[in-house]
Nucleic acid binder design. Sequence first.
DNA 1: GTCTATAGCAGGATAGAC
DNA 2: GTCTATCCTGCTATAGAC
Lengths: 214, 214
Amino acid sequence: MTQHPTGNTPERILDHAERLFALKGFEAVSIREITGAAGSNLAAVNYHFGSKMNLYMEVFRDRWISRTRRIRENFDRLLADKPEPAISTVIDAMARSFLDGPLNDEQLRHHVLLMQGELAQPSTALKMIVEEVMQPYQQQLSDLIRPSLPPGISEEKLRLCILSIFGITLYFTFARAAISMVMERDYDALFKTEVIQHITKFSLNGINTLTEEN
Amino acid sequence: MTQHPTGNTPERILDHAERLFALKGFEAVSIREITGAAGSNLAAVNYHFGSKMNLYMEVFRDRWISRTRRIRENFDRLLADKPEPAISTVIDAMARSFLDGPLNDEQLRHHVLLMQGELAQPSTALKMIVEEVMQPYQQQLSDLIRPSLPPGISEEKLRLCILSIFGITLYFTFARAAISMVMERDYDALFKTEVIQHITKFSLNGINTLTEEN
DNA sequence: GTCTATAGCAGGATAGAC
DNA sequence: GTCTATCCTGCTATAGAC
C-alpha cells in the first residue's frame, strides 16, 4: 500500500490534479502523471471521477470554487464595519483579500493559473467561473463603489474598471516568470509586497478616471 | 495535388500552426490537425521543420517577432515628430499601436494568445519574447516617460506601471469570452473601441500615481 | 477500493517510393 | 518536395482478479 500521509485517494488525486492542471494545462497532463504524483493507481482517476475531464471539472467544483469563497469571505470581513466604504477602501480590500488573503503563495498561484487557463482557452468550466464567481463579485463591487461616484456614470464603464483590476492582478500572478526576467529580480516575498502596493495604488488612480470625466 | 491558393507549404503550415497553437495551446494541437488545415501532407511538418516543437518555435521566430516589429514601427511613427512627448501621448501611442495598429482583429487576438500562453506556461520561447521584445520595449518606454516625471522616481515603480498596462491589454484580449459574458454584450467592433478608450484613460491615470506620491 | 493487464486508439516521427 | 505506410510510444478507459 502506497498510502500517503494526508487524505484519502480522491483527495490526494484532487490535490495533485489541481497543481498539475494549473502548472501545465489540461492537455499537457496525463492521468499517469497525476496518479503517479498522488501515489495511487493508474485506474483510480477513472474509478473515482469517471474520466479525466470530470476530474478537471471536479477540481473547479470542489477546490477552485471553495477557494474563491474563502477570498470572498475575507473581503466581506474587511468591509464588515463599513456600511458605505470609500472607493480606496474597497480597492484595498479587493487587493488585500486576493493577494494577501487566506491563500498562501502557492495556492494563489495555482488558483490564478487555473482561472487564467479557462479564460484563455474556455472549456465547460468557464460558465461556472463566470456565473458563480465573476458575475456575483462584479455586482457586489459595483454596488459598493457606485454610492461614491457622481451620478450618471454608466454601469459599463464601472465594470470595465473592475475587470481591469482583475486583469492586472491576474497578470502579475500568472506571468511571474516573465515579470521576474523583465524586472531583473526574484519574485520573492519582498517583491510581492511591492507588487501588491503597486496594484492597489495604480488601480485606485485608474478607477478615479470615472469621477474625473465629463 | 492539394495546393492551396496562397503560399507554399511551409508558409501555409506556419499560418495554420500559428492560429491553432494560439487558440488551443501547444499540447492540444496535433501535427495531423495542422497539416490537415494547411492542406498538406502529414509528413510535411517534420520534413520542413524537423519537429512539432521546432515548428512552434518557428511560429515565434518567423511570425510573432515580425508582428511585434510592425507594432513597434507603428509606435515609433506615432511619436516620430515629438522629441519629448507627454506621458499621455506615450500611453496613447502604446495603446493605439497595439490595439488599433497594424494588426487586424484576428491577428491581434492570435498574437496575444500566443504570448499569453508562453507567459503562463513558459517554454523555450519565453527567453526570446523577454529578451527580444519585452525588455527593449520596456526600456524604450521608460526612457520616453522618465523626462516627464519628477526626479527620484525609482525605475522599478515605473516598470511596474508599464507592465500593468500590458497586463490589462493582454487580459482584455485573451479573456474575450469571459469578458463578453460578464459584460453581457458581444465583443464587437463598437465594444472594442470602448475597451481601447477605457484602457488608455485607466492606464494614464494609473501611471500618474508616480507623479503624485511623496 | 485497489490492483494488473490490456484493449483500442491517437500521437510524433521516419523510411522509402515517386 | 510530396506522398503512403508504418513504427513505436504514450494515452484514456475498462475489464476483471483480489
